[in-house]
Amino acid sequence: MIRFQPNAFEAVELDVLFETVADLRQREYRFVQICATTLEDSCELLYTFIAPDAIDGCLTGLVVNVPDGASVPSITELYPAAFVFENETHDLFGIDIYGINLDFQGEFYKVSQRFPMNPRAAEQRPADEGKEADHE
């Protein structure tokens, strides 16, 4: 009996993230989710995809290390359904993501504390910041 699906983790740099995801889109990989983890002095993003012909359901995970204050490009051009996770990541962890197709600018998740999952971000980014990013 097979117990678990195989996992393939790959570490990816922030500047080649968009090209890597575009390549996966070209090969018709299906998008699963985006998740963030708070580490000691940075955050780590995990993008998960499934190959179209994966009989055993092998999951491919791209691990991206995001230093505090860095900006991450959005992948909603390639996978429109990612806007939910990118808005959620911004609202809960304070990671700045630019270029989302449906950008709620901090109003997607109604929480009473800013960036509840990442206390460092609440100190570094005081209120009313991150509204209009000037990256194009």
Partner: peptide, 28 residues
């Protein structure tokens, strides 16, 4: 397919996505 839908919502649009096809555990 473009909107990465899952579950019966996608299966009703003829997208054959179901995690039970992986055969993990007793499903195999």
């Amino acid at each position: 397919l473009e909107l990465s839908m899952v579950g019966p919502f996608a299966r009703a649009s003829n997208v054959a996505t179901d995690e039970r096809l992986n055969g993990i555990g007793a499903y195999g």
